[in-house]
């Protein structure tokens, strides 16, 4: 089979998704939340690396995507979302 990597990735993604469904969906405790977020990032990296071929691309392109999407995306999320707590407290 020439496309073993793709279907291996597929299997792995499915397993992760099922595991996430098993633990998620309810009132999340903090540890569980962290676990879910880590699993989410693992899935994203798997898709990027294997399906989008980032693992075989030039490392500069990989860094570009990592910096552009991961760094800026995380800066955006981490800089904005937690301030919602502040909005909640100000509202009283």
């Amino acid at each position: 089979m020439k496309f073993k990597m793709y279907w291996g990735t597929w299997l792995f993604l499915l397993a992760l998704t099922l595991a996430m469904l098993f633990v998620g969906g309810g009132t999340a405790r903090l540890a569980l939340l962290a676990l879910l977020l880590v699993a989410m990032m693992v899935k994203a990296v798997l898709i990027g690396a294997n399906f989008m071929h980032l693992r075989s691309e030039h490392r500069v392109l990989v860094w570009m995507v990592a910096a552009g999407l991961l760094f800026v995306g995380l800066a955006l999320f981490a800089g904005i979302a937690p301030d919602g707590i502040r909005a909640f407290t100000l509202r009283g």
Partner: peptide, 18 residues
Amino acid sequence: SLIVWGHHMYVSGMSPYA
């Protein structure tokens, strides 16, 4: 420049730690 946007918002009610 991508991580300093909050300096436009010192009086906006944003968290003072931010």
